[in-house]
Design a protein around this nucleic acid. Sequence first.
DNA 1: TGCGCCATGTAACATGTTACATGATTAT
DNA 2: ATAATCATGTAACATGTTACATGGCGCA
Lengths: 187, 187
Amino acid sequence: MSLKHAILGFIDMRPVSGYDLKAMFDASVQFYWSATHTQIYRTLNDLTDRELITFEVVQQTGRPNKKIYSITPEGKTELLKWLRSPLSLPILHHASLIKIGWADNIETEEIISLLKDYQVKIQEQLRLLETENRQQVDQYAKSPREARLWTMILENGLGFYRHELSWTREIIAQMEDFMEQGGKDMP
Amino acid sequence: MSLKHAILGFIDMRPVSGYDLKAMFDASVQFYWSATHTQIYRTLNDLTDRELITFEVVQQTGRPNKKIYSITPEGKTELLKWLRSPLSLPILHHASLIKIGWADNIETEEIISLLKDYQVKIQEQLRLLETENRQQVDQYAKSPREARLWTMILENGLGFYRHELSWTREIIAQMEDFMEQGGKDMP
DNA sequence: TGCGCCATGTAACATGTTACATGATTAT
DNA sequence: ATAATCATGTAACATGTTACATGGCGCA
């Protein structure tokens, strides 16, 4: 899997705590790969057992102590090995499309209503991605090449939601068109 | 989850065996939702326990007996309830983007090589989706409205891969451009 | 002779989600 | 007061993957 490697990559940037990692995931890659804190802590334990990372406990006053993880030489080797391995196909879990596939059981008006709610959700996601991530690229990129790569990653997400949005508009238009023509709902 | 509901939807079309279901998944929705036979058999047991489906054993000679599942009234109710529930956001698991995010560790030429292999993979997926699914829409649709819906579902998948392909071309172009300008690889 | 199809299933493991649990500090 | 932030963790459950297991039939 690659949650291990995503975490390894983050830790390689700078030593961080599990809590920091959760925040980093939410702030940057959540559109391409999300993780709960449960998963993150479990994976950190696993990576520690395999000696790909180590941690030291930082004592704090007034707030909980924390474990700051850093990457080991073995971890760095593993990360590089993963980076050089082939890019795998994206996996799309699109339950809504399956639902639409069986939607012949319900009325056209109801389908349109579901699609319009969906459209709003997609618009929100798009706006989130546009506003939250735009700045981060320039803030964190360590080289011009990295800035280009990160910009393209962001573009991939934006393009995905833009495509989904225009597709939703099109299917709504078709269903409305169908209603106006007085098409029969069910077979 | 919706594997339950996807299966319920398939069984609602016509009574089928677990083996048939696996084939139906592979032939139609695998781009939006894949399932292994292990998962399918487990889910069939679960749906049977909840009395949303039932089965009868069909004795066969020369080949293994099979269980043909059909939907119960409770199952149909559950399916309709699901169909009327809000459309959820698609979940994209795009490990490659995360890998590209850390790619500043390796050389530009190597990144380009990885991207080119990826491009081929996407092209193959696109071709698969273009050829295999095109006919099925007209074969199985039971009404003009259903045909429109299924065409749009197919379009969603095609659009996704087309977008991914053009994005890949663009990032390759940028990396090649970067190399020609003699940009420094690593910071 | 060996492969693919038909048809089912289990065991072990990996990954991901939800709920429960604690407890001080700081801002509204 | 009460909510959010910081910071960690476990338990139970749900979902998904890989490998193991069986066995006849038809085709090249």
